[in-house]
Design a protein around this nucleic acid. Sequence first.
DNA 1: CTTGACAGTGAACGTTCGTTCACTTTATAA
DNA 2: TTATAAAGTGAACGAACGTTCACTGTCAAG
Lengths: 193, 193
Amino acid sequence: MEDKKLRSRIREISGFYADKGRMPSFSEVGKLVGLRSKNAVSKLVKRLEALNVLARDEKGRLVPGSIAYPVKMLGTVEAGFPSPAEEELADTLSLDEFLIGNRDATFLLRVSGDSMSGAGILPGDMVLVDKGRSPGSGDIVIAEVDGEWTMKYLKKRGGSVTLLPANPAYEPIRPKKELKIAGVVTAVVRKYK
Amino acid sequence: MEDKKLRSRIREISGFYADKGRMPSFSEVGKLVGLRSKNAVSKLVKRLEALNVLARDEKGRLVPGSIAYPVKMLGTVEAGFPSPAEEELADTLSLDEFLIGNRDATFLLRVSGDSMSGAGILPGDMVLVDKGRSPGSGDIVIAEVDGEWTMKYLKKRGGSVTLLPANPAYEPIRPKKELKIAGVVTAVVRKYK
DNA sequence: CTTGACAGTGAACGTTCGTTCACTTTATAA
DNA sequence: TTATAAAGTGAACGAACGTTCACTGTCAAG
């Protein structure tokens, strides 16, 4: 089969999965790509399995392969963009899987102050916070000090604890009494436009 | 049913979906949560539909509801963490859906220089680049100037084009001849640890 | 104690699923 | 042109699916 036709069929199936969150059945694949025979679909599926576009369960049911990982990972900025042929071979990645370690315990918070701008966390950014992780020295944490919530570097030295901003305009915080650490920042996400 | 039992059942089903990338069948749900009758499963599914945990196609097939959006979105850092009861009502979000606009045209590049550190893009960060978007003035772009790839602010003034770093240690670039813009940076992602 | 609502069982049923087989059409190369 | 492989058709088939119905156990309220 021409490469182009196969490509467009893969795109159809990916689109279906992205839309609905489930894989199409064989007959649905047929309608999607314009095949009237389920046998033809069966052959197509075998090819897509070989290409890791989709796969099968231990129960034999269709599950997404690279389809589930929507973004292609290339090299570095300096390397620029590879040729289209190389692009096809690129690893694909799901940001959800990449960024979220502990599904049930991670949350998304919007950043409003600029006290961590020195660490590349700007107002308006979103941070992923893991509530279930034990904070270590050097981690960026969400903490409640004397009734107020902030995001700061956590520094432990000896027995004492300091909350350190990443902006010289702010002062380090040495909590008087209460210091509740609600979670550790595990990722930062910024969307433009 | 006790809330706790229902909660754990939802977790089972979410886990199945996260693992396999597909929803379980009714009998599989049965095994998962410990129900031997498909009728019992049917009743459970109706409840979960009402809770938007899962939903159904126009074809009546199970599709993920909030399950597909793995991270709970809360307020701002200053607001801290709400009480567990409020947490349950939080909107959930898929980072893939949130960050990726143009599925087929967006790619992930790793940042290696510090020329954009003033814009909160540090070495080691990942940037999402949309190849299919027409770059506007003020956008951060991936460009090839005189054979080298860089990431810079794009400034258009009159007919001339300048590439502006966000770090005073670097000089603005006024391309002599060739300037290929490969894509627009649509998001930044940083993972700690 | 009785009633009723709720959670679950087990079986029957029609539908849809994916596999398979024999066959036809289309394209490629000798 | 003829041979040959690849791409697709259409139908048959058993298995699994989700729906539905009649029924059982449990527990709290009247």
